[in-house]
Amino acid sequence: MNRQGMLILAVLGVGAVIGAPFAIPAFITQLSFLWLMVLFALTWDIMGGQMGYNSFGNIFFFGIGAYVCAVIQRDAGLDWHVAFFIGMAAAAALGVIAAAILGSGMLGLRGQYFAIATLGLGIAGGEIASGWDYIGAGSGLVPPLYPGALGAREMFFYFLFLVLAIICFFTLRRLYSGRFGLAINAIRDDEDKAESMGLHTTRYKTIAWCVSAFFLAMAGAGAGNMIGFIDPRDVAFAGLTFGVWMVLMAILGGKGTLWGPVLGAAIFHITQELFWTYLLGWQRVALGLLIVVIVVFFPTGILGWVREHYPEKFGQAVDAEAQGAAMGEKAEP
């Protein structure tokens, strides 16, 4: 694809995501959830795809974010917007701190041990939250209602998640093209060699988890408000829905790539909205089955499959891009 084509595509894309809520206002909530799903998949892929560390407990940071923000909104007594954004910042900060503390201990472990260690994380979060009266215990929390006119609330959350997802995407793109991306790829490919070159592996791994937690906690802060009710087990620490979806979406699209998780999230969310309800409660069964099928038969995901089968169209472009990125920083060779 040439430069001009890319530009036109980009303009069309920007137009579509901005215009969508106006064009199809009936679907605005589903569209907001789409961006949330993109955030889920992108943040999971930092560890699971780029670094080769499957985390089954990332939902933990989402839950922390939802609660921290809601508690601040409840107790601060400020204007809704001010309280919300302060809450969101606090959520991000606490998410990062939690990831740093947990990570500095758990990320000294190698991948398979880390994976199992994270399994209980979301559940432990849910248990604690549903036993803690200060945050509403089992009956959950209801964040203060958005003050704007009818319809404005939906618009607000749509654009909130859109902006978050875009910031996340470009932050990761930037990080992946630099030292961080190279280091976590090296950890995935051969951690022992990385150590023997003096890499601060645990530090890099912890940073990766902190980046995940940063965006997930903010997403949690927003989602708690958008959903309007924070249930400890079914919204905040929803391991069986959101927690599993993250994994599925990233591997469906193609883990270890930038666009894969985005693609996976979009496809998963759209099919879910279209067909899921016809499964009459068997969705979650299908979910498990889908993970098995993808992992076993399409381990590289959609993007990986496309690249394998049409290398001249997609494989090449990526290499050229990588070359460009490497050369970009350099004066004319």
Binding site: G178, R179, F180, G198
Partner: peptide
């Protein structure tokens, strides 16, 4: 990936490789 990691702060870790 093999650059020296002797003195590497957080900023370095998140930045790109220099020219």
């Amino acid at each position: 990936i093999s650059i020296s990691h002797r003195r590497e702060g957080l900023i370095d870790m998140l930045s790109r490789h220099s020219a």
